[in-house]
């Protein structure tokens, strides 16, 4: 399964990804970094393309049991 992964050390918490996500799978954790809810993420890459800091990558992940 493909999931969005945020480089939280370099995330600027601007919220563009959360706004772009068609599944409301991303939230900004206390104004510090973006967090992806992997249960909702479908790996569509919209956030990856929108992220102004380019710190989101959609990667292949093992299916969660």
């Amino acid at each position: 399964m493909r999931k969005a992964v945020v480089n939280q050390k370099e995330c600027v918490a601007c919220g563009v990804c959360a706004k772009t996500c068609p599944r409301q799978a991303i939230s900004i954790f206390h104004g510090i970094y973006a967090v992806v809810n992997e249960d909702l993420c479908v790996g569509c890459k919209k956030c990856e393309r929108a992220c102004p800091a380019s710190v989101i990558q959609v990667v292949q992940k093992e299916a969660a049991s």
């Binding site: 600027v12 601007c14 563009v16 104004g31 510090i32 970094y33 929108a50 800091a53």
Partner: peptide, 29 residues
């Protein structure tokens, strides 16, 4: 670059993120 690339280095954004980090020190990565 990307439309909102200003947000990456916006001084207000850097300040509000720092304040948020100070308030939630344990959550900072």
């Amino acid at each position: 670059f990307k439309p909102r690339s200003w947000c990456v280095y916006c001084p207000m954004g850097t300040m509000t993120q720092s304040i948020s980090m100070l308030k939630h020190r344990r959550m900072v990565k």
